[in-house]
């Protein structure tokens, strides 16, 4: 009985992941076979043309995305962790209202934020800059990060903080030497998601970085689709490489991912 369920599970997963398989298959397909009907279901005449094109043309984009991703992670954690500590343990008056604002903030459509940022960046000269994109991308993650950190830090036993206080640590010291190390897991969860969202961002990149010198990989792929409609193996090869962070995340950090998905949604 259990074996049957495993078989059904495998089949369902196969159907679900077929597009991912197809992306990989196409990335290895020769140009000449690209329009073949019916297509090869496996990369029988596998080629690395696509990947060679990626190495030639897309490396700078990947580098930019990496910088933007890491910058977004740093900014997000630096902003969200102290705030969450305050909300969870210091109980500021009006903190509840702030939590509500953060919840609402997540509802604002990206296009609205993009338009607002466009106006601000235009007058301050931050258009087409990596720093500007880091700031814009961080808005995808900060509200989520505060909520996740707060949920986690609320669970830190009060005795632990009291012990630190007895030892003479102030509020800031307690945060840095006790709360932050204990919250390592939630820092990882938040960092992973912040990186992934910044890495995947398309709307801010396409509005705030049109024609900049350093563009992220999402724009690299988008231009690829626009420019050379024929070279789908190169497009899919770029897509495969752009999926690497997500894959790493899933392999090494699966439990953090599941924690992140449910943290915002499921209560008690």
């Amino acid at each position: 009985m259990s074996r049957w369920k495993t078989a059904i599970g495998l089949a369902l997963t196969g159907v679900m992941l077929f597009p991912v398989y197809w992306m990989i298959n196409v990335s290895f397909t020769r140009d000449t076979d690209m329009r073949k009907s019916p297509p090869y279901w496996f990369p029988v005449h596998g080629t690395l043309e696509g990947y060679r094109a990626v190495l030639d043309q897309q490396l700078p984009y990947l580098g930019t995305s990496l910088v933007i991703g890491l910058g977004t992670v740093a900014l997000t954690v630096a902003l969200a962790a102290p705030a969450a500590y305050s909300l969870a343990k210091l109980r500021p008056r009006g903190g509840g209202a702030l939590g509500f604002v953060l919840l609402i903030a997540q509802m604002i459509p990206g296009i609205i934020m993009a338009m607002g940022f466009y106006a601000i960046f235009l007058s301050t000269g931050f258009l087409n800059s990596v720093l500007g994109l880091i700031v814009a991308d961080s808005t995808l993650a900060v509200p989520f990060a505060v909520l996740v950190f707060t949920a986690f830090m609320s669970g830190i036993p009060e005795e632990l903080l009291q012990a630190a206080r007895v030892d003479g640590a102030g509020v800031a010291r307690t945060f840095w030497s006790v709360v932050l190390p204990v919250s390592r897991n939630s820092v990882i969860t938040v960092s992973l998601f912040a990186f992934l969202w910044a890495w995947s961002d398309f709307i801010f990149a396409s509005t705030l970085d049109q024609g900049g010198e350093r563009e992220p990989i999402t724009l690299g792929i988008y231009r690829y689709i626009g420019n050379n409609n024929q070279q789908w193996n190169a497009i899919m090869a770029t897509a495969v490489i752009a999926s690497i962070p997500a894959t790493i995340l899933l392999i090494i950090a699966q439990r953090y991912v599941a924690a992140g998905v449910t943290a915002g949604a499921v209560k008690d």
């Binding site: 679900m16 792929i221 897509a239 752009a242 997500a246 894959t247 899933l250």
Partner: peptide, 14 residues
């Protein structure tokens, strides 16, 4: 979880 984690541009172009 894979489809949810992929960048949207990747899944959309696929």
């Amino acid at each position: 979880l894979v489809p949810w984690l992929l960048p949207l541009i990747v899944s959309s172009s696929t």
